[in-house]
């Protein structure tokens, strides 16, 4: 008798479960919020109405990936002959650049354009002078494959990395699928996104420490704004959020032959209006990233400021103006890992 009772309960239980299942399915769209309040767009205003703003703090990224990215960034095995790391041209001890007019790739090959700094690159709206990479990941793949830079490819790199037990271990820790091209790029990009340089004297000034500026610097900042530099060099990076024609007001190439690099964004879009158009570079840390311009034509800030005034602003700046503006530009050097860049 107890057996049949047990069976009765089992049957009843199974029936009840079926019924509950069915009832759960039936009102699925009654139970679910019919009109989920759409979260107010997470559009925190990224910038104030002012022309400039302080550099934000570095983003909080998975430390394992960041650490792995740094190692890869400094690892010459990513190049064809295992001699050149990313850090070879983007020396973090030298403002994130090589301070050469053009970089020297594997086998001594020379590049066609001045290497931009890697500092704050994550905050740039696009990568490369001509903006041909939308993200750091895309950017990182560029030099690796470039014949005149690292001249490498994944077929060569990945086995090298996989042969390294430490990499294998750390990759598995950081990524579920271990060592892949995507993960290598992601790790490098993650590291690069941490290369933010806050706490420059300018930022401190913006944050209310007016005493950190000398009179000249203050004057320089005033002129920087008054002369229209902030038309393009605005935002938190003082640039790096728009394109502009090099020679917007006065032709820059009038007295010299035009190289392919000079064509700028035209090389990407093919549109005439993009001829000589370049990403407006950020002026953050500009004091430690000479020489200047895509063609490295300005060895000093003074020269660069003069060129800018003439060709972009259509005005010829006096010596005093230049000196004061340069003084201001030197306040833009920020800190990385607690140390001011050199």
């Amino acid at each position: 008798m107890s057996l049949s009772k047990t069976r009765l309960w089992i049957t009843a239980g199974a029936g009840a479960i079926l019924l509950v299942l069915a009832l759960l399915l039936l009102p699925a769209d009654w139970l679910a919020p019919r009109d989920t309040a759409i979260e107010p767009a997470a559009f925190a205003q990224p910038a104030s109405a002012a022309a400039v703003a302080p550099v934000p703090s570095p983003p909080d990224l998975p430390p394992a990936r960041v650490a792995l990215g740094e190692r890869l960034f400094r690892d010459p095995r990513l190049s064809a002959d295992q001699t050149l790391a990313c850090a070879g041209c983007h020396d973090l001890a030298r403002g994130g650049v090589d301070r050469l007019p053009v970089s020297i790739g594997v086998g001594g090959s020379k590049g066609g354009i001045n290497a931009p700094t890697v500092f704050n690159a994550g905050l740039n709206f696009v990568q490369f002078w001509d903006g041909r990479a939308a993200t750091l990941e895309e950017q990182a793949a560029g030099p690796i494959h470039s014949e005149i830079e690292m001249a490498s490819d994944w077929a060569r790199i990945l086995p090298r990395l996989k042969a390294d037990g430490e990499y294998v271990r750390d990759f598995v820790t950081a990524y579920p699928d271990g060592i892949t091209a995507t993960n290598v790029l992601d790790a490098i990009a993650s590291f690069e996104r941490t290369l933010v340089t806050p706490n420059s004297r300018f930022d401190r000034y913006l944050n209310g420490e007016s005493a950190v500026f000398t009179a000249d610097e203050l004057e320089g900042y005033q002129r920087f704004r008054d002369y229209g530099c902030t038309s393009c060099h605005q935002g938190r990076l003082l640039g790096a959020n728009m394109y502009q024609k090099f020679g917007a007001v006065r032709d820059y190439y009038l007295h010299r032959p035009i190289t392919k690099a000079d064509l700028g964004r035209y090389n990407v879009t093919g549109r005439d209006e993009d001829r000589h158009v370049f990403k407006v570079p950020s002026l953050r840390n500009v004091a430690v990233t000479a020489p200047y311009f895509h063609d490295a034509s300005a060895a000093t800030l003074e020269q660069a400021v003069v060129v800018m005034g003439r060709h972009q602003l259509g005005r010829d700046l006096g010596q005093r103006d230049v000196a004061q503006i340069v003084a201001f530009l030197r306040t833009l050097t920020g800190e990385w890992r607690g140390k001011v860049l050199e």
């Binding site: 990224p46 910038a47 109405a49 400039v52 703003a53 709206f125 902030t230 959020n241 728009m242």
Partner: peptide, 14 residues
């Protein structure tokens, strides 16, 4: 009314 493009660029990217 606004003197930088950070917001604009962010919204374009968004």
């Amino acid at each position: 009314l606004r003197l930088n493009y950070d917001g604009l660029i962010a919204h374009v990217q968004r």
